[in-house]
Amino acid sequence: MQSDQALIIEFQASAHKEAPYTILLKRHQQKVYYQIKRMVTNHMDADDIAQQVWIKVWNKLDGFKMESEFTTWIFRIAYNETINFLQKQQKTGDHNLSDELIDYEQAASSTDHPKSSQIQITLETAIQQLPEKQRFVFMLRYFEEMNYEKIASITGTTVGGAKANYHQAIKKMEEIVKRA
């Protein structure tokens, strides 16, 4: 199996870019999509953002200098696109927290595992109430099990800043659980 680095070199050197790009896309597509989905809750929005991310990857991959891992780079693009999307939504007032909770309930009722307990609803409420950056850091740390160095590179902060974001997120969720 070709490494990401070898595929990027092939992409940058060749006129036939589609073959190495498609391998990279299929290799990382799911992880990128799930991270976006955790942030926006709605599948259609997640799909749109993911497509934007991959189009950006195509456009910018020629200039990628491999100073960081490809996954760090692609998650950084995903982070920027997701934050931009959420901020635009807030500005236009298209979406609010109650909408997101309704989305969650609809999603839960459509799965094979309906929400069984109050704690599940509390968890989703708590996650949605976190500031965007803290939420992104929390998802990367808990679900993607990334180290803080990588999280810091993705979110454009220091390692200390990333750690602080994670612990602030836990603290906020703790407060929400106490209130519930």
Binding site: A108, K115, V177
Partner: peptide, 17 residues
């Protein structure tokens, strides 16, 4: 805070595709 199962269920919902 939430239990391992709730977190696992949350993740399962994200991956329902």
């Amino acid at each position: 805070l939430f239990g391992k199962q709730s977190l696992a269920q949350f993740e399962e919902e994200q991956q329902a595709r």
